[in-house]
Design a protein around this nucleic acid. Structure first.
Lengths: 157, 157
DNA sequence: TTTATTTCTATGTATATACATATATACAAA
DNA sequence: TTTGTATATATGTATATACATAGAAATAAA
């Protein structure tokens, strides 16, 4: 029961497959963002907050600098600083001035943050099942083509 | 010279292709957004403003209500109203109370708006060439898989 | 006709992004 | 040491989103 993009956005056919692809990728990205944001909202997190929290867990028990977080964020963050603010307010992370470099900060995930991520993990497989409308092989092909699509232009990041 | 997503975001391999796909779609969507926003910025437009302007042109010379704009927008707009504001300020569109239904507004693209879109159109083919790193056939396949991926879940919009 | 409900749009709030700039600290050059 | 420059982070502004709500007008129900 596939719905073609042309139908969904009530637009005339695209002039070529590239033109459609540009819109399709923007559209599908926004769609995915909406779904995942809705899911995370039930845990009191925004998508960027969730991503930063996972980066912090990846380093735990070592601290992260803001620069390290920026480096690892999916969506380039001109404001990792403010996202960390929110996590600190919710007591999901702690921030302290770095001893070795007083310009930098040490950000560490708290027990509360680790517990929250563990809770989300527990439900992950179940949540992901909604995307099994395509086969594993097709998902792999899709990944491959998306990687290739970005390939020659990754320097744009 | 393809760059795998695992490398770009410096992360361990994903547990399954679906998990990678979710991240890949978010990532590629954000990437595309950045590129297209940068392009439109040179014309003084944001991406949502551009999309609304094209919707207005699609109806020209007939007016659009805010509801019609919302209906046709790619990224669901809880605030088409404020995007139209910006277009009106730039004199790219006009807004008047609808005669037949005084709750509604008639939004119409101006000559200046039409000229701006025509200018962008002129450069479109040239701009699109940066995405020809994949073949037309691959682009078609990618479109097909993205459509299929969203297929069973389009009711989420 | 009066009242209740729905519809259309606008607006307030919280969060996020991009971009520019400010501030403190570290480091290098003189 | 003093000066200059680079680095790490924070913050201000404009724009955007999601969500909730407000206000006016249209429509339905009584």
């Amino acid at each position: 029961m596939t719905v073609r993009l042309e139908d969904e956005i009530k637009q005339k056919a695209f002039r070529n497959p590239y033109q459609k692809l540009i819109v399709n990728i923007l559209y599908t990205g926004g769609w995915m963002n909406l779904i995942q944001s809705g899911h995370l909202k039930s845990f009191g997190l925004s998508l960027p907050q969730y991503n930063v929290l996972r980066i912090l867990r990846g380093q735990y028990p070592n601290p992260c600098s803001i620069n390290l977080i920026i480096d690892r964020m999916l969506d380039k963050a001109s404001n990792a600083s403010r996202i960390v603010d929110k996590l600190v307010i919710k007591k999901l992370a702690e921030r302290n001035t770095c001893e070795k470099d007083r310009r930098a900060v040490d950000v560490v995930i708290t027990k509360k943050g680790l517990d929250l991520l563990a809770d989300i993990d527990k439900r992950q497989d179940n949540w992901e099942e909604q995307f099994h409308g395509i086969t594993g092989k097709q998902a792999e092909k899709l990944n491959e083509l998306l990687d290739k699509f970005r390939g020659n232009d990754f320097y744009n990041f």
